[in-house]
Amino acid sequence: MEALSKIVKAAADAATGDEKNIAAAGSAGFAYGLAAIGPGIGIGMIFGSAIEAMARQPEAAGMVRTTMFLGVAFTEALALIGFVVVILLKYA
């Protein structure tokens, strides 16, 4: 939290281009770190449940695998949007 407040303060204080770049880089890294937490947990849960389901019912493995990839795709999108936002913060 202290780091976040420092970064926000730096971003607010930044007037010249160089300081703004530094603040943007710092907040970009922080933003990606935050964005990766939730999807990381989510993808872990999806794979765990899928493995459990496949172990219980191996005959349904094909269907489970398809649904698993769909779920992973939706969850992963959040982390990737975080990645895109990082690039936006740095370049836009």
């Binding site: 999108a77 990737l80 990645f83």
Partner: peptide, 8 residues
Amino acid sequence: VRLFANML
């Protein structure tokens, strides 16, 4: 974004 960001 999913496709683009994964590949990038």
